[in-house]
Design a protein around this nucleic acid. Structure first.
Lengths: 249, 249
DNA sequence: CGGACATTTGAACCTCATCAAGGGTCGTGG
DNA sequence: CCACGACCCTTGATGAGGTTCAAATGTCCG
């Protein structure tokens, strides 16, 4: 049903951290209501497919429908294929998150791994059937979808109306909130995505991303450590550069 | 709770086409399951607020939460205010459609009328409470939200990776599908939105939109009739300019 | 028919993309 | 542990697509 593509290097098996049962259990803990009947639990489990993805490997959905994806471990990007060498990253997702993959239409979508990943996926038709009589699951899924929609809209504002500098600032603030760790007032980021990924999510080129990061570094707003490390100084300074409304706190 | 802003000219009452009861009935027909109990029906009705909006008047949501909006009659735009004179239109919605308005965060959102509108709105907290025990309503809302998400993502691809010409082509094709009327092979569009609206939804300026439309006209791909009339020739010609994947049908 | 306003058209400018090297970083193998 | 090498990232120079500013033309409403 699903097919793993390895664009560069072969899929590394490395440490297969989780078994299918463990993976599904994590999904159930995160997403299914605690009082769900054992029968339903099993039916959801039967509908789930697990995949291990090595870095930069991608999961394509051969059957042309929507899919629901749960990230058990690792970090992923949802990529839309506009055309030859014009990809747009529509969303990043980290361990514990659930999202939907649209069915192919004018553009096709795939999920790929920013770092080694364990992933659980469901065909929407299957999932929908199971969930339709479980209001708690529907609510949870609705919540998740609304969250994705909010993020997508915020992203669209950036893509449509913000300068390169503002987009980078927004990106860093967003990542800080999602995967940053705070230590004595400063926020440490270990970005799992490459400059190319950042560029493709912000509608820019890697060169522009690099230049903007350099600029922020020169202005003392951030520090960098290697390829993936970023240390944010006072968050206010980044906010000032993000082109947000003034009033907001 | 809600507040009507009239940026230019006073709100015109014109023909108030629908009473509250009629408006709610249309919503119920479209969105609530036919077998819903009378009691629930009344509770939904009690949570609904109706508004009449004249052209270019906007509905702002004073209480800072999410809202659910149903367009009874007319056509609307969902506008995000990025900052002073930098607005991004996040979605257009037409009669019969339901959508969510995000709560204000880094940016604030409002709904305004492309032409005279009747609108029904719900606070999300109210709606959510009522819907949580009605799987059919949840399913319907989930469907709607997924549809919005798909559209938003497609739009994001355009904003991030497409040229002005491609964005216009995609826009026209999308509008043709939603509000076009076909007559002997050609599609007639009566665009309810101004060039400014088109520009603000595509992340362009009105001048660029105008130039691109002129170009399409010169190339014989479209014809225009007044401000709002557009006639699409062979749809294939527009598709060729939309930057879609080649294979797709 | 007149007038306000939306749209079109034109010209100069600017941001960011593109093309092209030059450094760093990190993984691999010795 | 160090050194090599591939790849990623940075930096520089140039150019195009789209914005901005300005003005003419069209459209539609009263």
């Amino acid at each position: 049903m699903t097919w793993i593509k390895a664009p560069a290097g072969e899929p590394r098996e490395k440490t297969r951290m989780t078994t299918f049962a463990e993976a599904f259990q994590r999904f159930a803990d995160q997403f299914l209501p605690p009082n769900l009947s054992d029968a339903m639990h099993l039916r959801f489990q039967a509908a789930a497919r697990s995949s291990q993805l090595g870095r930069e490997n991608s999961l394509e959905f051969g059957d042309g429908g929507q899919h629901i994806v749960f990230v058990v471990r690792g970090a992923t990007k949802l990529v839309a294929h506009a055309s030859e060498s014009r990809d747009q990253i529509v969303a990043f997702h980290f361990a514990g998150e659930v999202f939907t993959v649209p069915e192919p239409g004018n553009h096709s979508y795939s999920v790929s791994a920013l770092k080694d990943c364990d992933i659980l996926s469901f065909r929407w038709t299957d999932f929908s059937t199971l969930a339709s009589s479980e209001p708690a699951v529907l609510r949870r899924l609705l919540e998740t979808t609304m969250q994705s929609l909010r993020r997508c809209r915020e992203n669209a504002i950036g893509l449509g109306r913000k300068t390169a500098g503002e987009r980078i600032a927004v990106f860093l603030l967003g990542m800080a909130e999602r995967i940053g760790s705070e230590q004595d007032g400063r926020i440490f980021l270990d970005l799992p995505m490459s400059r190319r990924d950042i560029a493709e999510s912000l509608g820019l080129t890697i060169e522009t991303v690099s230049r903007q990061l350099t600029k922020l570094k020169e202005e003392g707003v951030i520090q960098t450590a290697g390829r993936s490390g970023v240390i944010l100084g006072a968050r206010g300074h980044l906010r000032d550069r993000a082109g947000f409304l003034l009033e907001a706190a």
